[in-house]
Simulated scan of single mutants.
Amino acid sequence: MTITASIVLYHNDPLEVQEAVRSCLSSPLINKVYLVDNSTEDNFRSLANNERIEYISNAENIGFGAAHNLAIQRCVTSDYHIIVNPDIAFHEGVIEHLTAFMDQHPDIGLVMPKVLYKNGQLQRLCKLLPTPFNLFGRRFAPNRRWARQLNEQYELSFFQYDQIADIPCLSGCFMFVRNNVLQTLGGFDTRFFLYLEDVDLVRRIGHIARTVFYPHVSISHGYQKESYHNSKVLRMHMKSAIQYFNKWGWLFDRERKQINQDTLKKLTGKK
């Protein structure tokens, strides 16, 4: 069994990064952790202090997906690869539990565990495939009734996060992926510099394997909505949204409509 993981860095909090690395190394199943640094300085090189860690310095910000792809290209023989955000932390046993679950279900290409804020509160990261009204409404008109109603459905507000479920849109903060699926797809679409690269990848995985939420183990995630506070990052977010809908379809996306309808039927039990 070979499991690899990658963490993309960009001027992050050193203590959070150390905790993310420690969490990965706590599992003997993870053979290699790739630290891919998009920072202008290689201040995190010192973390590569044992043979299970490989540090890759880009000396510039090449983007989230492109940086992860550098690691993905180095681990073609892995059984599983884990995409890990630098503000993630988890306890011993999480990787073993997820590995056993994936081993038992070869039709699953991606699994995401329950994700909690640092204070233990649930993060609602299971979603439907987004429409333009979902993304732009929740960002620019969050208090409008129509936006709230659309957002409740998009975020599956009724879902209790207490059951294993096929979900078409899962967060990229922690993605436990069957590596042959990841290699078949070529990793992330590098046209997305930042934001929605995970939505795009999960959707592509869904074409050839199941994408599943698994509630029986949890991880913690710092999760800061940076595009709500930084105008430059907001512009990146908007650019990625435009690229995403240009790729998959704006108002007319039959596949999205069918997938979302099927997901709602399965989760609600309604025909």
Rank of each mutant, 00 (worst) to 15 (best):
residue 78 S to V: 10
residue 69 N to C: 14
residue 224 Q to S: 14
residue 179 N to A: 10
residue 164 I to D: 01
residue 260 N to C: 06
residue 172 G to M: 06
residue 78 S to H: 08
residue 8 V to F: 02
residue 221 H to Y: 13
residue 189 D to P: 10
residue 70 L to G: 03
residue 172 G to Y: 02
residue 271 K to S: 09
residue 32 K to D: 12
residue 46 S to K: 12
residue 191 R to M: 11
residue 12 N to L: 07
residue 165 A to R: 06
residue 256 R to V: 14
residue 55 Y to R: 05
residue 120 G to D: 08
residue 40 T to F: 12
residue 141 A to P: 00
residue 55 Y to I: 07
residue 206 G to N: 06
residue 41 E to T: 13
residue 19 E to S: 10
residue 17 V to L: 09
residue 221 H to Q: 13
residue 120 G to L: 13
residue 9 L to M: 08
residue 206 G to H: 04
residue 3 I to S: 00
residue 59 A to S: 15
residue 115 V to A: 08
residue 94 V to Q: 02
residue 134 N to F: 07
residue 57 S to Y: 13
residue 19 E to W: 09
residue 7 I to V: 04
residue 190 T to K: 12
residue 102 M to Y: 01
residue 68 H to E: 07
residue 135 L to N: 01
residue 177 V to Q: 03
residue 36 V to Q: 02
residue 183 Q to A: 09
residue 223 Y to G: 00
residue 51 E to P: 07
residue 239 K to P: 04
residue 168 P to G: 02
residue 65 G to A: 11
residue 59 A to K: 15
residue 96 E to H: 10
residue 244 Y to Q: 07
residue 153 Q to N: 00
residue 74 R to I: 12
residue 128 L to H: 03
residue 264 L to D: 00
residue 139 R to T: 07
residue 154 Y to C: 05
residue 125 L to S: 00
residue 74 R to A: 15
residue 27 S to Y: 02
residue 53 I to K: 02
residue 249 G to F: 15
residue 136 F to L: 10
residue 253 D to I: 15
residue 176 F to K: 01
residue 239 K to E: 12
residue 89 A to C: 13
residue 270 K to F: 13
residue 196 L to G: 06
residue 133 F to G: 03
residue 96 E to S: 11
residue 64 F to N: 01
residue 105 H to S: 04
residue 49 N to Y: 07
residue 238 M to L: 15
residue 219 I to E: 03
residue 75 C to F: 05
residue 263 T to W: 01
residue 80 Y to D: 00
residue 93 G to N: 06
residue 158 F to H: 00
residue 201 L to V: 09
residue 20 A to W: 03
